[in-house]
C-alpha cells in the first residue's frame, strides 16, 4: 500500500510505501521495507522495535467495519507527522500520547483536567513541562506520590459543591482524580518506559531523544571528552 498525504500548504508528502498485516481482528502497519526511509525503530517517531507503527492507543486491536475508518484517520495523522519529524526533528506535541503505559494515565489526567477547565494547562505540563500543574509537581511527596501539606487547598484549584477549595489530601479521591498527582504518575511511567529501552540505539533523527543521552555513541563521546 502506498500513501501520500496533503500538508497545510497543499503540498504533498513524499510517497510512503507501507505493508499492512492483518491477523484476525488485529492490524499492524510497517514501512516496506522496514527502515527504508523512516527509522527502523524510534520511540519518538512512534515506530516500535519490530518496525510496526504506533498510530494510536490500541489502534490496531479489534478492528471492525466501524473502527476501520478511525484506523485510517490515525494512519493519516501518523504520515503527516512523520514528514514534519523528518524535516524539523520534532513530533507535534498535540498529536501524540505518552509512551507505553503512561498513555492510559495521560488520558485519565486529561479527563480530570478537562473537568476542572484545566485542559490547556495540562497540555502545557506534558508538552513543555511548564505551567501551574508542572510546577505543582515539586510539592509531591516522592514516597507517597501524593501532595505534601495535605491540609492546604489543592494546587489544581478544585472546589466542593459549596465552592469551598478542596484539600490536597481529598482532591485525588474525588471525581477523576487530581491532575497534578496523575501527572506525577505519568512521568514515573514514562521514565520506566525509557529504562526498559536501555541499550536501544538512538536513530539520531530527532532533536530531543532520551536515547541520545544514554546511547552508546553520545555516551562515549562525552566520557572521552571529544566531540566527534
Amino acid at each position: 500500500m502506498d500513501v501520500v498525504a496533503t500538508r497545510s500548504s497543499g503540498a504533498f508528502t513524499r510517497v510512503f510505501e507501507l505493508r499492512v498485516v492483518q491477523v484476525a481482528d488485529q492490524i499492524a502497519v510497517f514501512e516496506r521495507p522496514v527502515g527504508g526511509t523512516l527509522p527502523a525503530c524510534c520511540p519518538e517517531r512512534h515506530i516500535n522495535p519490530d518496525g510496526s507503527f504506533c498510530i494510536g492507543l490500541r489502534a490496531g486491536d479489534g478492528i471492525t467495519g466501524a473502527s476501520a475508518t478511525a484506523w485510517w484517520e490515525k494512519l493519516h495523522v501518523f504520515i503527516l507527522c512523520q514528514e514534519t519529524a523528518a524535516e524539523a526533528g520534532f513530533w507535534p506535541g498535540e498529536a501524540q500520547l505518552s509512551h507505553g503505559e503512561a498513555a492510559e494515565i495521560e488520558l485519565a489526567a486529561e479527563r480530570a483536567a478537562d473537568q476542572l477547565g484545566l485542559q490547556s494547562v495540562y497540555r502545557e505540563a506534558v508538552a513543555f513541562g511548564s505551567g501551574p500543574i508542572a510546577s505543582g509537581l515539586a510539592k509531591i511527596n516522592q514516597k507517597t506520590g501524593m501532595l505534601r501539606n495535605g491540609r492546604s487547598a489543592c494546587i489544581c484549584g478544585r472546589t466542593d459543591r459549596h465552592r469551598r477549595p478542596l484539600l490536597r489530601r481529598e482532591c485525588h479521591r474525588c471525581g477523576q482524580g487530581c491532575p497534578v498527582v496523575l501527572e506525577h504518575w505519568r512521568r514515573i511511567k514514562v521514565a520506566e518506559y525509557w529504562r526498559g529501552l536501555r541499550g536501544q540505539a538512538c536513530c539520531g533523527t530527532m532533536r530531543e531523544c532520551p536515547l541520545k543521552k544514554a546511547g552508546p555513541t553520545d555516551g562515549t563521546a562525552i566520557s572521552r571528552g571529544t566531540g566527534a
Binding site: 512512534h46 515506530i47 504506533c54 492507543l57 484517520e73 507527522c81 498529536a95 500520547l97 509512551h99
Partner: peptide, 9 residues
C-alpha cells in the same frame, strides 16, 4: 484518539 504513541514492549 488519532494520537500516535509508542507501545509497551
Amino acid at each position: 484518539a488519532a494520537r500516535p504513541h509508542a507501545a509497551p514492549k
